[in-house]
């Protein structure tokens, strides 16, 4: 019992150090900008300016014509559209490629050609093809999502153990039953990893697309903030982008534990 308490205390000690370290960073930040004036606030805003801008931006439409929630919704809309389509295409495609030798033989070479190109390099092409709007963004996000989903689902299915498939044979499973009852459950953790990686890639692609050519969204907002020399707005946008990415990841992680672990326990 004594030992347990000691451990808890230790844990708390590190928690305190963590809090101190965060506070110290904010403190140094404040000290350098607002007291020493090492950089002008238009270049590197102090922590309170950022906080103030954040609150103001919730309702203010300056300088980019929309409030922070509007920009956020705009970004989310596109990401979720592209992401869902990408998942709906990528996961089955990956599974199919891993399961069927013939699909693999024909699809793999094409896939290997596309894979090394970073998703956002397609942006100029899509913009020329579809014009500025939701389409090129959704297309880029779709592409980034699909690639991540295909890679991970493919590896996941390939991890199925031959012995497990033999067990399926013993039970007289059809090919389809082997896929759904053995291979997919085996691959589930990897598929979820894919979903998380894909979400990161999708979010990044959307920000890139908004930075380059867009008239709304968080990426657009920070780009406009830069043009208007409002560095604090750029900060607010970046923090928001980071935060949303974190929330998405947390949701998917939670789902992963719920679904994948529940499956394994069965």
């Amino acid at each position: 019992m004594k030992k347990k308490k000691k451990k808890k205390k230790k844990f708390n000690k590190y928690m305190i150090i963590s809090c101190c370290s965060v506070l110290a960073v904010i403190g140094i930040w404040y000290f350098c900008i607002n007291i020493l004036h090492l950089k002008q606030e238009t270049v590197f805003p102090g922590p309170f300016t950022v906080a103030k801008t954040f609150v103001q931006k919730m309702t203010s439409k300056v300088p980019d014509g929309a409030t922070l929630p509007t920009h956020l919704l705009e970004s989310l809309k596109v990401v979720l559209l592209g992401y869902s389509l990408g998942v709906l295409f990528g996961v089955p495609a990956g599974i199919l490629m891993a399961w069927s030798k013939w699909v693999d033989r024909f699809m793999r070479p094409l896939f290997d050609l596309i894979r090394p190109v970073p998703g956002l390099a397609w942006i100029p092409m899509f913009i020329l093809l579809f014009g500025i709007g939701i389409m090129p963004k959704a297309a880029v996000i779709f592409l980034s999502t699909s690639v991540a989903c295909i890679v991970n689902s493919y590896t996941g299915i390939r991890q199925t153990k031959q012995e497990h498939l033999w067990v399926g044979d013993v039970f007289g499973f059809s090919n389809r039953q082997k896929l759904f009852r053995i291979a997919i459950p085996t691959a589930l953790p990897m598929i979820f990893t894919g979903l998380r990686v894909a979400m990161g890639a999708a979010w990044m692609a959307s920000v890139a697309a908004e930075l380059l050519a867009s008239s709304a969204g968080l990426g657009y907002m920070i780009q406009q903030g830069r043009y208007a020399s409002k560095a604090s707005l750029v900060f607010v946008g970046m923090i928001m982008i980071g935060l949303v990415g974190l929330i998405f990841d947390a949701i998917l992680h939670w789902l992963e534990i719920k679904v994948a672990k529940g499956m394994n326990a069965e």
Binding site: Y14, M15, I17, S18, C19, S21, V22, V25, L120, G200, W203, M204, V207, A208, L211, G219, I222, Q223, G225, R226, A231, V234, F235, G237, M238, I239, I241, G242, L243, G245, L246, D249
Partner: peptide, 22 residues
């Protein structure tokens, strides 16, 4: 870990691309 992890955890989810304007 106690010192750097909280800061790192905060910076990591911001995609590198979002740093471009700043």
């Amino acid at each position: 870990r106690a010192i750097f992890n909280p800061i790192f955890r905060f910076i990591r989810p911001i995609p590198p691309i979002a740093w471009i304007p700043i």
